[in-house]
Simulated scan of single mutants.
Amino acid sequence: MMARPPKIAQSVLVVIYTPALEVLLLERADAPGFWQSVTGAKETPEEPWERTAVREVAEETGIDAGAPECRLTDWGLENVYEIYPRWRHRYAPGVTHNTERVFGLRVPPGMPVRLAPREHTASVWLPWREAANRCFSPSNAEAILWLPRWATQG
């Protein structure tokens, strides 16, 4: 079995939400009790942020971010954070920080979700404040707390 190439330390965070500001959270398969929005690394350094966001949403939830009833928005926010030690082995030696670009994806109420079982074991729709409180990642919680501002723009 061939080893996977190291992950690129550039990723997206996609806050998926309804017009009523209910937020989709996913429970990590490799860390039970760790809830988060969709996240994922670029496949190449040149991959555009939006393409990464669309791909990761499709892979992790089965949602087509480009569907007419959906609206993907680049919030223009980037977080740089230290990679948790438990996940550093996925990156090249010496890589300790990741740059995360934040997106929002508005979907209609009742949007079906199809989880990638290797990545997530459960999903839940929660009111935005409750969702922020459940996130294990401070940058994810902060992005959700920005949701009311971003949801009223554009």
Rank of each mutant, 00 (worst) to 15 (best):
P45M: 10
E46R: 13
P68W: 05
A41P: 07
T44G: 10
T61M: 02
L72Y: 07
R51Y: 02
G62Y: 05
G40F: 01
T52V: 11
W75R: 15
T61W: 05
E59I: 14
T73L: 13
E56G: 03
I63Y: 02
R55S: 09
A67L: 03
R51V: 12
E50W: 10
C70Q: 11
P48M: 04
N79K: 11
A67W: 07
T61E: 07
G62M: 10
N79Y: 15
P48S: 09
A53H: 10
T39V: 09
T52E: 07
E43Y: 00
G40S: 08
A65E: 10
V38N: 00
G40E: 00
T39Q: 03
I63M: 01
A58Q: 12
E47D: 11
T44C: 09
G66V: 01
T73P: 00
R55M: 06
G40Y: 04
A58V: 01
E69G: 12
P45L: 12
A58M: 13
D64Y: 04
E69P: 00
E59T: 13
T44P: 11
E60L: 12
R71N: 08
E46A: 15
W75C: 11
R71D: 06
E78V: 15
W49T: 02
N79T: 12
A58W: 14
G40T: 00
